[in-house]
Design a protein around this nucleic acid. Structure first.
Lengths: 246, 246
DNA sequence: CCTTAACTGTGTCTGTCGGACGCTAATTAG
DNA sequence: CTAATTAGCGTCCGACAGACACAGTTAAGG
């Protein structure tokens, strides 16, 4: 049998072969257990050997279901990301709907990524896209459909928002919402020994969280992005594209 | 000799030992060649064996200079990122300086990342921070020093901008500036077979690049972020923090 | 000068990894 | 019943990071 490609596994319907012994495993169970293993011990500990032991079979048996580890990880990522939530309600009666929807979208997908931190490191670089991922894209694009933005601009906006969420998942460790503390810990002792070379860094860390309490870094970025999008949408609504010189 | 830690290697001065044979290699040369190797063949092909062959020594000789591969990669990243450029000129005489400076900052660091694409995948997750990286942070924070933003807000703003740049480096392949084409290629054939399930995605791709030509995805994101920051800065300038309900 | 401590280079070994190949047994179409 | 097709898996391979011990080299201390 020609092993199915990653795209077939992600998008294709499970097809039962006609002859031969019945499989004792299923693709779904393999992916589920692999996700559980990666959640518990990290992506580095996810080896075919470990996974096979957990499943109670030999290592090479897995290759009857999955052509290689790369494809397995792609399946894990798409399964872990899950389905997008239903669109959120607008903030007020007269308010446009898209900011609230996109905010909800961003915080929800942030939670999904955070629940499976390995999914970030597993998705660096080009890779086949799964149906769940496209569903999230569809969901965000739907929120932006009413605005006057170009198709390419809508795509860019979603990529911008998604990139912010992903980069924050990446930098914050598993337990922390506190970005500044995380950065401070990373820079840490080395900075204190060279404080004179980096006065602005020292000043920024020394400065308090500000008068109005403080949103965390995730919400700060979401707010700025949504504000920036609102500016562009208002421009588009005001008149034909002014081609403002940058 | 106790092998120096990653932070010592990144921040410490090179100290010559008193006795023993002179080293035939140098940390600088090792890092330089490792970067060249990763540039040419990718991070996956960077093994201690390969690097030793390139340097004309045995594999284990490298461990006299670097405690492990992890630390080597950290050194590579910090060296590859280099020094930040001098601050850019403001756009006009009456204009505030920070948008132009941050725009220049973002496009320049984008170029650095793109020149060494492996630096993105090498920097996922927590890791020791090097002096060059802190210098870039210092540079961006200096640009934001004049604004009324809190220290934490300034940090969040830089993280936001840097995250956007990094996520775009990640998604665009080595040759492409064209994000939409890249995404389209990844989704590709699978989407066309399920076009009915994702009408907004299809619509966004079908729509043209818009009336005014089109900035690429990098500039789109930078523009939105800078616009969003401008809104916040204007709020801060207008009066004491209004604690606007989100 | 010589002794000796410290340091560099490296050959060898181990454990782990992803994956190729081919064998055997089970199941079903004809 | 027979043959085709499939699943499970034992065995092997090459590549990897790194531990460890040993030999050769250099400079400090007498």
């Amino acid at each position: 049998m020609a092993t199915p490609s990653a795209l077939d596994l992600l998008w294709g319907a499970p097809q039962r072969p006609r002859r031969g012994p019945k499989p004792s495993l299923s693709l779904e169970r393999i992916v589920t257990e692999a996700i559980a293993l990666a959640d518990a011990e990290g992506l580095a500990s996810l080896s075919m050997q470990h996974l096979a032991e957990r499943l109670g079979c030999a290592k090479m048996a897995l290759y009857r279901y999955v052509p290689g580890k790369t494809e397995l990880v792609a399946l894990m990522v798409d399964a872990a990301i899950g389905d997008p939530p239903p669109p959120a309600e607008p903030a007020g009666p007269g308010e446009p709907a898209w900011p609230a929807v996109l905010r909800e979208w961003a915080t929800t997908i942030f939670g999904r990524y955070r629940a499976h931190p390995w999914s970030i490191e597993a998705t660096t670089g080009a890779r086949p896209t799964g149906p769940h991922e496209v569903a999230w894209l569809e969901s965000a694009l739907t929120a932006l459909a009413g605005t006057g933005l170009t198709g390419a601009e809508r795509l860019d906006a979603v990529v911008l928002l998604n990139g912010h969420v992903r980069s924050l998942v990446q930098v914050t460790a598993a337990g922390q919402e506190d970005l500044e503390g995380e950065v401070a810990r990373q820079i840490g002792t080395a900075l204190s020994a060279h404080a004179d070379r980096y006065p602005q860094v020292v000043a920024a860390f020394a400065d308090g969280p500000g008068p109005a309490g403080r949103d965390n870094a995730l919400n700060f970025g979401i707010d700025r992005i949504l504000d920036g999008l609102a500016v562009l949408i208002a421009e588009r609504a005001a008149g034909p594209p002014p081609d403002r010189g940058r």
